[in-house]
């Protein structure tokens, strides 16, 4: 029988190495999720940490802080190079802001890998933070419980963007464009591993396509 990860996933083939941008934010929570799906989590704080990664997670945290530290450590170009080489990416909350093509409140966009417009803290301040069960048109397995903390609102999506989940008002809260996944909520704070498993699936598909 093939080996299984703790959540029952198939572990055949080499173990994926998934980086977590570890400048600040919910790094440990993503590392735990990555370990649970049977992959290896790698902390990324300097450009050299990106070597040999199969995918990269941009965690929740403060996007203003992260964007400054990304540039302070010269991580912008090497992360873009990793994405352009086809490595899958997952951005959650602040990570979604970093991936977005357009930021409505005036900040300059960072990676511009996702054709959508976000408004920072669009759902409000901490007092407006909430939990909700989400409709998941693009994910099998039924509703998904999302934790939203000072979350960004997706105001507009391009045609190439697939909507994986929506909030009660029908706004996109989880999206995919090619190899890039992003959520306005925090899958790292709950035990539902569907998004991390989808990231692993993208890694496997890419490996398959290269063969």
């Amino acid at each position: 029988m093939a080996p299984r990860s703790p959540d029952g996933g198939d572990l055949r083939g080499p173990i994926s190495r998934i980086g977590v941008l570890a400048l600040q934010g919910a790094v440990r929570e993503h590392e735990r999720a990555i370990t649970e799906i049977g992959a290896e989590a790698v902390r990324v704080r300097l450009p050299r940490d990106l070597a040999g990664l199969d995918a990269l997670v941009l965690p929740g945290g403060e996007s203003t802080t992260m964007r400054k530290l990304i540039d302070a450590y010269g991580l912008r170009e090497p992360i873009l190079a990793l994405a352009h080489a086809g490595a899958p990416m997952l951005g959650t909350c602040a990570g979604m802001i970093l991936l977005a093509d357009r930021i409505i409140d005036g900040d300059e966009p960072v990676f511009r890998l996702l054709d959508l417009a976000v408004r920072r803290n669009g759902y409000g301040r901490q007092l407006d933070s909430f939990e909700a069960d989400l409709e998941t048109p693009g994910l099998p397995g039924g509703p998904l419980h999302g934790v939203f903390i000072r979350a960004p609102i997706v105001e507009d999506v391009g045609r190439a963007v697939e909507i994986l989940a929506r909030d009660a008002d029908g706004r996109p809260v989880a999206v995919r464009q090619g190899q890039v996944l992003a959520t306005a909520f925090h899958p790292e704070l709950t035990s539902d591993r569907r998004l991390h498993r989808l990231l692993r699936q993208l890694i496997a598909d890419r490996a398959e396509a290269r063969r």
């Binding site: 400048l23 600040q24 934010g25 790094v27 929570e29 945290g61 901490q126 933070s129 903390i149």
Partner: peptide, 12 residues
């Protein structure tokens, strides 16, 4: 959500 915000401030 309260503990969650604290987790988002980690490392900062």
């Amino acid at each position: 959500t309260k503990v969650g915000l604290a987790r988002m401030l980690s490392g900062g």
